[in-house]
Design a protein around this nucleic acid. Sequence first.
DNA 1: ACGCCCTATGCAACGGGTTGCATTGCAACT
DNA 2: AGTTGCAATGCAACCCGTTGCATAGGGCGT
Lengths: 198, 198
Amino acid sequence: MALDHALLVSLLEKPSSGYELARRFDRSIGYFWHATHQQIYRVLSRMEAEGWISAKVQAGETAPDRKVFSVTAKGRVELSRWIAEPVEPEGTRDALMVKLRGAAFGDSQGLIAELEHHRAAHANRLTAYRVIEARDFAGARSASPGGQGPGALDPQRALQYMVLKSGLRFEQGWLEWCEEALGLLRNIKQAKRKRTTP
Amino acid sequence: MALDHALLVSLLEKPSSGYELARRFDRSIGYFWHATHQQIYRVLSRMEAEGWISAKVQAGETAPDRKVFSVTAKGRVELSRWIAEPVEPEGTRDALMVKLRGAAFGDSQGLIAELEHHRAAHANRLTAYRVIEARDFAGARSASPGGQGPGALDPQRALQYMVLKSGLRFEQGWLEWCEEALGLLRNIKQAKRKRTTP
DNA sequence: ACGCCCTATGCAACGGGTTGCATTGCAACT
DNA sequence: AGTTGCAATGCAACCCGTTGCATAGGGCGT
């Protein structure tokens, strides 16, 4: 149950309404944690009932009313408890891998298109991450992590940067792997054609 | 709904009983797709009802009876359809990232232990993958993908190798990232100590 | 003889994520 | 004037994965 705690962290970084959270989860945060607004509202209600967060209604003059949530002391305790609680790393579960192994028994042409699509999607994400990096963490790239030198980040931003770095690393990895897999599929297709039309 | 199709691929590679599938999903396949035996039995029933697979009961003399499933023509069609069907690459959803960002507001000591645990887990998986690579794909490492040279793999095994390669790549990436994050957390902790006890 | 583990299959309850739909009000375009 | 679009919140149904439990026979150790 990690959406609860993702929301706690988001609210600690900045108290917000459900709507704002939903938009942040479609943008910056959404790059490493995804959630719909329905989910977010449901979890916010539950957390308010449990006293982890408290709401203050902001009457909107031109816009509808907003319920702005902040994390309570109880919520902070819960977050610390959860962070220290050990969790096993999740096993991979990617449909592409299944499709690749399945390609041995059928359609490989459709899979090539699919892989090209994934390659493009990962390239887009990588670009988006690089834009964020340049915008928010320029100059901190080569600084020693958490150190005190010039261009050093405060802990909060250094940790955010570390999360972004995982995104950069994995999108780069995906990209290279997609290229490799596409090369393989094309070779297989070519070999098949050679065999059928000699 | 990809477990269905993962099972179809597994059954095409080798017709099996639910129990065998569950064990394979705990071993080789499980490294890139995880499922429990309860899930597997339920999905097998459904797929049998839909005519994607058919069962043959093997009466065991010393062991209990086994229902061995094979993929039907209808099942093959469904698999091809699904492979060609475009799917968006899934957004990341990793609790570690949330914990990292959350560490700015509380417990960083517990998180260090957690990261060390993850680092060890990923190192273990990497080792396991390398064992599989050496056992099943020795000699194919540097061969051109899908080519005809010496040490070339047939398409089925070449595709399996490509899946394994993604595992190798990502576990390696995780490992390096864990090291980097641990370095950062230790630096933050040290800087905090300096500030509190000058 | 008793308990324990392994093979082999399955049901039932719960929980979280996904999808679809609903409502209210203002602003802006056609 | 009517329609589209956005801000803002929420309910309800469904699907899938997780967790816990059940059963039934055979081999093996003490």
